[in-house]
Design a protein around this nucleic acid. Sequence first.
DNA 1: AATATGTTGATTGTTGACAATATAAACCGG
DNA 2: CCGGTTTATATTGTCAACAATCAACATATT
Lengths: 230, 230
Amino acid sequence: MKAKLIGVGRATLAQEARAEIERMITEGELTAGEKLNELDLSMLMGVSRGTVREAIRSLADSGLVDLIANRGAFVHETTLSEVQNLYELRGAIFAMACAAAARRVGTGEERDLAAALAVNIDKMEGAQETEELATYYALNIEFHDMLMAAAGNPKAKVIYDNIKREMHLFRRKGLSIASNIARSLEEHRVIADAVTAGNEAAARDAANAHIQRGFDRYMITAGRSRETEK
Amino acid sequence: MKAKLIGVGRATLAQEARAEIERMITEGELTAGEKLNELDLSMLMGVSRGTVREAIRSLADSGLVDLIANRGAFVHETTLSEVQNLYELRGAIFAMACAAAARRVGTGEERDLAAALAVNIDKMEGAQETEELATYYALNIEFHDMLMAAAGNPKAKVIYDNIKREMHLFRRKGLSIASNIARSLEEHRVIADAVTAGNEAAARDAANAHIQRGFDRYMITAGRSRETEK
DNA sequence: AATATGTTGATTGTTGACAATATAAACCGG
DNA sequence: CCGGTTTATATTGTCAACAATCAACATATT
């Protein structure tokens, strides 16, 4: 028995349709470049075509879809060059966030972060030892999310999450996540140390270096994948 | 007599309606917190209400409007705390862009920037001497835009421009643009020198310092405005 | 007078029909 | 068989009508 939510948070059908389209895109049911057929989606979801249109229109600025007049909406295709740009942006924003987190730790505004980061890193070490890749990956996401949240800049987190999501439109082509866990984990430790020490500059540099090296690791994988295709 | 545009770039009515709503918001005809009445707008624009809905929905992620289920769309009200967050973000992205521009100057990818920056700074000096504030402001925008474009990261420019636009939702409350032209101009010179010298680190630091000091100057003005209101 | 309840009108959300445009299929000529 | 043109079909864009929700106002109760 579900109680109906009351008030501002209640979703319209169009909002629910949007969430479903987002899910289909991020989970790969709708692939990069694929066309969003309004009538198909409306029948699939059991709503009118107009409602699907509203949902799609609301994705206009999301980076997930491209709206082309009279031709429809297509899942955005993220090129390698775009991925590079997104990595650079992501690095700048993550660096800014870690610096802000370090500052807030230093002023006492942020109190629980050090302990939470330490727990997370312990768990990542465990996942590394038992070679549980999926667990490591989830903890990796948690690590980044904690730092983004600790920056106290909600707008930065929204943009950061959107960038990550947009980058997944490239990954969906079959590339696996680049993983050099030992290196990645060591970089996490450096970031956490700088942040918990309240050292803005060190946090900023370590965070940016971590993302850029992640990109380098990613490019190595992308390079290999190209050879496989040829 | 308006010529109809042909091809992929041709705008739908909903796209034109969106552009008009954006103009009304950024030019202050629709003020922060104001409700967007679909029927009023549709009569104003000579299109159906559904078309206005599509236009408004397409602004969902723009930062300009807040969509509230069953209550409608409201021009976003940017708080001072949000402005601070936006300044921080803007600084990080502008810093990243100036570093990238410096790198591209250093590798020869970007060839015309040094000359263009020099021309712009000359003109800003002229505007400073003749105390033409509007001219200085336009040149200031041009300076920033040139650097954002020279970074070769279109996504960064989109996000940067959106952030600037969103910040204007606060300015619309009557605050005038903080201006200390001599200081601002000197900071522009430092940025231009670092970029044209291909010095990434110096460009990054100078750019971020420039935006943060712009925020400091802005806060001084905001502080004064508060006293006026009390 | 203050508060609670009911009613009405305004507005938002959804749907289906029609118009406009793009795409696919069929047709024709060389 | 191929390329160009015409026709048919599919899809997108717009509109208007109906349903659902909210806000404002009127009335009843304490």
